[in-house]
Design a protein around this nucleic acid. Structure first.
Lengths: 152, 152
DNA sequence: GCGGTTTAGTTGAGTGTTCAACTAAGCGCG
DNA sequence: CGCGCTTAGTTGAACACTCAACTAAACCGC
């Protein structure tokens, strides 16, 4: 009874897998090389840099990064060792922790950003037509929508 | 001089990141749960199952899976422990190794496949229109093309 | 305000990935 | 032949992620 993938779907799935893996690997390698951090850590710094006061609750940050709590907890622990983030007790909820971007972290992020944006542009947007960019946006939203719905 | 991302690109990039991460996480979790292996290992078994004699040279397999040699080497070592793959000296090149899918490995793959295909269908193809599937294919190919070109 | 449930976050063990260093065999060429 | 260069694959250490178990505080209902 399995609804197998037809040839078109099969080919699409393999191309998609290959493309996303190669893309993420390339960006990860570049960021590791130029900024000394994996892409996931870079994203944490980005989110914090956009937050008021450069700080966020751990769970909020985990949601923003699409990360599990455990993953974020480990990641912030490492970022704290590097001195790019520090933890602080949440004033309004004694269970809570705030992750705070340090000045050094902000500096590192500012240094890393241009190279990373060039990577994203060069590997992704430069390869696509404007209409493909629009379609990619809609496709991504559809996937996210489907996963969200199924979780309920 | 950095060509920053405009709003449209920024939003697309974040949606794409979120979608691929959530999708891969979901498939990985499902496969780990139902078949006791991560998606990367499943893919190795798939490729071997499609090869003549159910075997492939290590490097060939690494290329097919878009994996580094090191990663594949570790992965095959684990798959060998599980008894799903075995290694064999290459008859024509004494440096080489063949990875061979065992009968047990084939059995495991056959059991895992229907559930995984349902996942791919449910999380991805059911969410897209046929024309979006076509576009996703072209977008993926464009990304792969760009990365390949830059590597030279 | 007390006991059970939910929410916030951490921890450690186990597993997977990366990177650089390594062995061994094929290849090219004087 | 013999010497260097490349290719095939492995290894171990460092790092990242997952899962399940845990602590602690907030919330809820009576």
């Amino acid at each position: 009874m399995t609804r197998w993938l037809d040839d078109q779907e099969q080919a699409t799935w393999r191309a998609f897998l290959g493309a996303t893996r190669a893309l993420m690997d390339a960006l990860d390698r570049e960021l590791q090389h130029e900024a000394g951090m994996p892409h996931a850590y870079y994203e944490i710094l980005v989110r914090l840099s956009e937050a008021p006061e450069h700080n966020m609750r751990m769970s909020e940050l985990a949601d923003a990064c699409g990360s599990s709590r455990s993953r974020l907890s480990h990641a912030v622990a490492r970022l704290e060792e590097s001195g790019w983030v520090r933890r602080q007790d949440c004033p309004t909820d004694r269970r809570g922790q705030l992750a705070v971007l340090t000045d050094e972290g902000m500096r590192r992020l500012t240094e890393a950003a241009p190279g990373h944006v060039e990577g994203v542009r060069g590997h992704l947007f430069d390869q696509l037509t404007p209409s493909q960019v629009g379609e990619l946006r809609r496709i991504s939203d559809a996937i996210i929508g489907g996963l969200k719905e199924q979780r309920t």
